[in-house]
Nucleic acid binder design. Structure first.
Length: 295
DNA sequence: CACTTGACCTGTCCGC
DNA sequence: TGCGGACAGGTCAAGT
């Protein structure tokens, strides 16, 4: 579920909430959610302090003071929600579900598969309905050697990432469709289905267009639109279609600003024609059939 | 090789 | 209300 803006939002929340906390207990009930359990994870993690929270592509990294890091992928339905002791007291006094948009007071629930408890009795919950997500404990120095990190493309929002870099990376995928190339994490990092559709609408490019048939000027337009969409979504706290919540259990509001995503049968904001939903690169794909001309 | 499809899971929604 | 099937924001492995 979460793409770059959602993971970035979680990262920004967590760095305010858990840096400096010491782990006192670890719970997990689904080995695939916490796959490297051959060593005694519990005893190894107990006493570790959180020193930093980082993001690369759609992956979160929680650095510990033991030279190890927790590497976390939320995949489709993963959530990382922190509940402080004070908030827990509030929910105990006022009942579960307070405040109403928050998961505080409702956790753990049946989708909770890992819980980190800190010294102050606060908890970090890893919830994952579909169980595609995972957490791994690995030496911090080994992170760049993970296959995914060796292959993943550059961060599209990095200051030193230019339109020339962007165009050059897409030219390596000239034979495929622009939507498949956007979703390919080895081309650029962090783009998923929502922001692929949104940026293609912004650049007036049909998702099935072959990369080779796009001019540099058109790719440049896509570069600008993609960065705009990602920035706007981060500002709005990401997109909550169904599952996504931030580190405080709250939803993101980008979906209200979406131009095409989940807007099938509603009028295009540019031309008024109805947005349609099709299938491209194996994914549900939203587009305006008039603005986004097939090449 | 480059590219596409199925698998990993559970929950929800839609049609009968 | 029940049941089957399609589908859901990601990524790999396996297939063409």
């Amino acid at each position: 579920m979460p793409e770059l803006p959602e993971v970035e939002t979680v990262k920004r929340g967590l760095e305010k909430l858990i840096i400096g906390k010491k782990v006192t207990r670890v719970y997990f009930d689904w080995p695939k959610s916490f796959p490297n359990t051959s060593t005694d994870i519990n005893s190894f993690l107990i006493g570790s302090g959180v020193t930093d929270v980082r993001r690369r592509a759609k992956v979160l990294i929680i650095d510990l003071d033991t030279s190890y890091s927790l590497v976390i992928h939320l995949k489709m339905t993963g959530q990382l929600v922190y509940v402080g002791r004070k908030e827990l007291n509030i929910s105990e006094r006022f009942g579960a579900g307070h405040p109403s948009e928050s998961l505080i007071g409702k956790l753990p629930d049946k989708s909770t598969h890992v819980i980190f408890t800190f010294k102050d009795d606060s908890n970090l919950y890893f919830n994952d309905q579909r169980k595609f997500g995972w957490i791994r404990l690995i030496p911090t120095i080994e992170i760049p050697n993970i296959d995914f990190f060796k292959k993943v493309g550059p961060e599209p929002l990095a200051d030193n990432f230019t339109n020339k870099d962007f165009i050059g990376r897409f030219r390596r995928r000239n034979n495929t469709t622009i939507k498949a190339a956007l979703l390919d994490q080895t081309v650029i990092a962090g783009v998923g289905n929502i922001y692929a559709d949104e940026s293609l609408w912004g650049a007036k490019i049909h998702p099935t267009t072959k990369v080779a048939s796009l001019t540099d000027a058109k790719l440049n337009k896509l570069f600008i639109q993609l960065r705009n969409v990602l920035h706007l979504s981060i500002e709005k706290g990401g997109s909550t279609d169904r599952n996504y919540v931030n580190a405080e259990g709250k939803k993101g509001s980008y979906i209200q600003f979406a131009q095409v995503f989940r807007r099938e049968n509603q009028p295009c904001y540019r031309c008024g024609l109805l947005i349609i939903k099709t299938r491209v690169a194996g994914r549900g794909t939203h587009l305006c059939p008039k603005c986004q001309i097939a090449a």
